[in-house]
Amino acid sequence: MKGLLIQLGLVWVALLILLAATVIAAHLPLGAAKPWISYAIAFAKAALILWVFMEMRKEGAIARLAMMAAMVWLIMMMTLSASDYLTRGWLSG
């Protein structure tokens, strides 16, 4: 149990480091890459929480698939909606 608790603590440290990283990145002049970086870090944090805190690493394929499904479905929703918003102005020249 002790080893597992230490592991949880290490993940927590990693999460806080990621939080610090995303705040620092938000202050850097990164231009268009900024949202990509902040969301990439958010995904990394979510992955750590899912994998270790939510014990997806111990779950069977079905539970993992269920959590993955929500992620994949949201990406489908965002991508196809964005395909409208990003190209809406192209024709109105």
Binding site: W73, M76, M77, L80, S83, D84, Y85, L86, T87, R88, W90, L91
Partner: peptide, 22 residues
Amino acid sequence: GFLVWGHHMFVSGQSLYASAVF
């Protein structure tokens, strides 16, 4: 079935490019 919803919006002002994908 989750990837086709835009076909309800062909004449709504949705981008034509998105419409083509849908």
